[in-house]
Design a protein around this nucleic acid. Structure first.
Lengths: 222, 222
DNA sequence: ATAAATTTTTAGCCCAGGCTAAAAATTTAT
DNA sequence: ATAAATTTTTAGCCTGGGCTAAAAATTTAT
């Protein structure tokens, strides 16, 4: 029997908690699907019966193989729709999450594979998160870490964000920081732990530590 | 309060019955939304309370201004998504209805206007049906009629279908009849009321009367 | 080891939107 | 005008997925 949208949302929530090394307790899920703990208990029972989830009270929930499979499919759909909305419909990157959240429940493999092809098999979504392929494999970005960990002199490219809230993304817009842009870390200021990034020439950006913590970078060897 | 998908489906069904000069009786609706008459009564009551529908037992239902407004928006969304699926994702024209049926409930004016722009403001969907504009105006095809009404010698262009079932559309595919193609009606055969259409040169297609009845054409004055 | 705090589950309720079966209303036919 | 057929509504029930408030289970702290 096909999953309902609500079931799909739970699976995705559990998945996200798992990869974030969090444990998918009743409470954590409650926050993340925006339902009361009582409702979560209810849904977990159903998902267990359908063999999508393993659950032990106080120990948290884990996806089974087939549950994880479903969750990854959802992530794929979500991220591909986000690419579509940004690249083709020119939405801002901070405005696509809610729409993708709805679109991800539509259609099956056929639709999403066609969308994937139409978009030229993008590897990352507009926030730099990797898009699982048709087989559910995720080729995660290698060697990415928070900009706050870089040392002075490092040259890097911005490749993702830790926080994809609208607030943070719009802040990056204001700082003119975008995925794919290259910088060099010029200095770290002791006073407020902020940093100075240079894009070259006389272009300098002052980056607060809150920002740096939430920006993912890769070192560029050139 | 926002409409549910189910409410939207009822509005669209009533709208379609209205334009097809049918009357949206409890029964007709029952067939068209695939629910029992009892369920229809139920929903009509709600739609009436929300001021979307006027209903009188045995006389059928009619949309109010705001109900019609909603219905036309849905038609717009449906047809634009169909264009997207066929033109961009290369679905066959007989395979897009069900998906568009789901997609049409997603998002609001912003999304659909962006989609419209992305598709270059198409005037017709893949079956030749006109797409309402943002204001809800439908510039219906003028002077279109069933191919079965044409007289010998008429030159015409195929511009739509009366039946958009998968079965019929695939049949047209087999006959190589497509929207936008030009023909001349060469003769009508008395025996089985079938017709011969020519695309010029030595290209002739024999068209049964069932087919001709369901193909919409416009006379070409050249 | 026991008390306090936390987490989870139960119980009972709500709403949307279906359903069936039977009753009521209306229309059509005789 | 009355009977027959049809259409609509009611009544009662079901499922999915929420909710609250209270009870039970477990963990943590003393």
């Amino acid at each position: 029997m096909p999953l309902t949208s609500s079931q799909e949302n739970y699976l995705k929530a559990i998945y996200k908690l798992e990869v974030g090394e969090g444990i998918a307790t009743n409470q954590a899920l409650s926050a993340s699907v925006e339902a009361t703990p009582a409702s979560v208990t209810n849904m977990l029972r159903k998902l267990m019966e359908e063999g999508l989830v393993k659950y032990e009270a106080y120990q948290g929930a884990m996806l089974t193989k087939s549950g994880r499979n479903e969750a990854v499919k959802l992530v794929r759909k979500h991220r591909l729709w986000e690419v579509f909305l940004v690249k083709k419909l020119h939405y801002d990157w901070d405005a696509v999450h809610a729409l993708a959240e709805d679109l991800e429940h539509i259609g099956g493999a056929e639709l999403i594979n066609r969308l994937d092809a139409f978009l030229d098999h993008p590897k990352y979504d507009p926030h730099g998160d990797p898009i699982p392929n048709e087989q559910g494999e995720i080729r995660a970005r290698q060697h990415a870490f928070a900009a706050s960990e870089a040392s002075v002199g490092t040259k890097f490219v911005v490749c993702g964000v830790r926080d994809s809230s609208s607030l943070f993304l719009r802040h990056l817009d204001k700082l003119n920081i975008r995925l794919g842009k290259n910088y060099e870390l010029i200095e770290c200021l002791e006073f407020d732990r902020s940093a100075v990034w240079s894009e070259g020439a006389d272009s300098y950006t002052n980056v607060s530590s809150e920002v740096a913590i939430n920006v993912l970078i890769q070192i560029t060897h050139e």
